[in-house]
Nucleic acid binder design. Structure first.
Lengths: 238, 238
DNA sequence: TTCATTTGTTAGATTTGTCTAACAGAAATA
DNA sequence: TATTTCTGTTAGACAAATCTAACAAATGAA
């Protein structure tokens, strides 16, 4: 129930982060401000402040202003940094809408470990140092991708019964794309054709141990990497 | 408290995912298997099964085997896919250890929205379609980065008092690096030099509204992008 | 068939985090 | 100064998720 590295719950981290943000502009933080910022009732804030004070993360006594201790400040800042890293990754790299990204980041920020955080920061530095990559990503990575190596790809429907292939991409509109992705059809995953389909007959494939039925039209949109020799390595499952 | 899109809690999603994994190899799923897989006491499993059955996500009656409904299967699969996407991102792109990645992914998987999930899958397809990018990332992105554009970068210590710059990279060993990143010094963030330091005198900088002190040695390791005209856009804070 | 073992359930406690409603203290106003 | 309004706290309820301990049912062995 406690998170990543701070040893406190996500909820308490949120309180610290909120206090931090209030203090960054307001000079003092009050129960009311916190309640409004977090869209929570003031009656929920008081016990949270008590828990934080118990853990020596804030200075707090009944009816007083609230201030962060050194330790609290550290956790607050780190949580905010996690939030920024995730939110930037989602918007700048993946192209998610700002609003959606904020909401995803808010939830995930409590679980990003110290090492992942550091590597994610390194990733941004890496990209920033390479304008040509940045440009590639900025132009969006869905338009250009299919054009480039599409022709060399195998279609799932061309697979021999009993043989397998690694998914390279899903070539379909957003709706079908999401359906397939929800079902586990993501790049790099191995699929095995159990039984080929035909008109009105679904393809049966195995993915992660489970058999799944795919209509011929949907199966058409699953493109596989050109076949290579066995590398001994499966994909990243197991 | 409920997550992303499924309308159930992370804990229940974990139960579904576990049942899915058990069923993918075991033909039947029992309370005991679930408890062992999740490292939880069997007494915790029973009420969870009741909650899942109430929501029509599993078929379950007292002392019976447990089976997923269509709806439960869908959520289980999607959760597993989220897990795989996050775990692959953390290991393959960021280079986090498998173990750490698993633990991060386990916690975050419940909060990745449908759209982020789809974009993350697209990101892998994008990379897979460009072996040259893949290779760049495979070789690690910390060694080569500083060599390339290091010379053109500004050091935080060269900033005029009162002026600002955007962080390009942290040029320091892992420990200092992490300290700085924890404090919000990540690529793309704007820092303002409030007061320059000197021997034994810390630099004071403002970051996200908060003043922070940096020892001269640490300040040295913060490298800024070469200055440009104001673009009207701040970084992604606000 | 009877007894022991395995498996699953229930009861009851605990923690966290939320709420509403009622109350108390402080500040502002008349 | 007295009263009203704003702010914060307490009390009490609830839900989710976990635990341990005790009990019940099913299975297997003698």
């Amino acid at each position: 129930m406690t998170n990543a590295d701070s040893g406190i719950t996500g909820s308490l981290e949120d309180y610290l982060e909120t206090i931090y943000r209030i203090l960054a502009r307001n000079s003092v933080a009050r129960v009311k401000d916190i309640a409004e910022n977090m869209e929570v009732s003031p009656a929920s804030v008081t016990p949270a402040m008590k828990r934080l004070a118990d853990k020596q993360l804030i200075r707090y006594s009944k009816r007083s202003y609230i201030d962060l201790t050194e330790k609290g400040l550290f956790i607050a800042r780190r949580t905010m940094t996690r939030h920024k890293l995730l939110s930037r990754f989602l918007t700048e790299i993946l192209g998610i809408s700002r609003k959606q990204a904020e909401s995803d980041a808010c939830a995930m920020e409590h679980f990003l470990s110290e090492s992942s955080m550091e590597r994610l920061a390194a990733f941004f530095e890496f990209l920033a140092a390479r304008p040509e990559l940045q440009a590639l990503i900025d132009t969006g990575f869905d338009e250009s991708a299919p054009l480039k190596i599409g022709p060399e790809l195998l279609c799932l429907t061309d697979l021999e019964p009993g043989s397998s292939g690694r998914i390279a991409m899903i070539n379909a509109g957003q709706q079908v794309r999401r359906e397939l992705i929800d079902s586990g059809f993501i790049q790099g995953t191995t699929v095995t054709l159990i039984r080929p389909g035909g008109t009105d007959l679904p393809f049966i494939v195995n993915l992660d141990g489970y058999d799944q039925h795919l209509s011929p039209e949907i199966a058409e949109s699953v493109l596989l990497h050109p076949h290579r020799e066995q590398t001994g390595e499966d994909d990243n499952e197991k």
